[in-house]
Design a protein around this nucleic acid. Sequence first.
DNA 1: ATAACAAATGCACTTCCATTGCACTTACTA
DNA 2: TAGTAAGTGCAATGGAAGTGCATTTGTTAT
Lengths: 137, 137
Amino acid sequence: MQTIEQLLESKDIRVTVMRLLIYKFLAEKQVAVTLSDIENAFEKADRTTLYRTIKTFEEKDIVHQIDDGTGITKYALCEKGCNCEIETDLHLHFHCNNCNETICLTEHKIPQIKVPDGFVSENVNLVVKGICDKCSR
Amino acid sequence: MQTIEQLLESKDIRVTVMRLLIYKFLAEKQVAVTLSDIENAFEKADRTTLYRTIKTFEEKDIVHQIDDGTGITKYALCEKGCNCEIETDLHLHFHCNNCNETICLTEHKIPQIKVPDGFVSENVNLVVKGICDKCSR
DNA sequence: ATAACAAATGCACTTCCATTGCACTTACTA
DNA sequence: TAGTAAGTGCAATGGAAGTGCATTTGTTAT
Ligand SMILES: [Mn+2]
Ligand SMILES: [Mn+2]
Ligand SMILES: [Zn+2]
Ligand SMILES: [Zn+2]
């Protein structure tokens, strides 16, 4: 079991207070978060810092970006074994039309998609929208 | 064979010069267009008019919106038989990373996606990114 | 320990797209 | 033809993303 510090260092990210806090915030969340969510959680910190932190995390494959169609990009921690490096977001994402939350369905891989002759598929974004388990019961 | 006028009227859209022009513009295009694309094509017209026209078309299921992940929403005419009303975008969309164009692959329906217990799927957005046929040859 | 350097942070500002309020014009309807 | 509703143009706003630069913090070498 490695500490967050060790994880960051293993990805060539220098450990800072801000980064540890943001990492912990993401880890506690069960849903994908927007930059505004982070902003609201850390009102004392500057938006730019939060923005650049999440960008650093993204570059180093600590988080992956999710485009759920709301127009606002969201982020979620990569699971161990997530290989965003190779092909982004192999798993699908679910966006709840009721509570507006988006979650990673890491167990649900994206099926192979056929494209017409001449087209080359490099990656796939699949978002299912509907009602989440919390809202449907 | 119905005229564009008849089509618009059948969808409860009043016919205006602007609307006819914009419809024709969309019909000629083989790719999804942004609001800016329309703007560039009709420099004399106001942005707002174009914006509201496309919104009207969208409401009345003349066009459907496409979120291809570029951050800019695109629009394309619905094919006859396209039932956006019921479930949006049953077909998949292809975004070319080279020429930046997005097209509807209307023949390619989205496969049935399984979601976990408690989740209710209402619709699905599927975007494949890669190299289009024009750019790959 | 301290100086020198590099990276991280904070502040201000910018850009781009989407959206709205309101005045004016055009088109339908009585 | 007058009255009314819808469409259009202009101006302004808001939100999110992104950048330049000064300042602070942390790392490294002397
Ligand atoms: Mn995910
Ligand atoms: Mn389409
Ligand atoms: Zn929900
Ligand atoms: Zn292309």
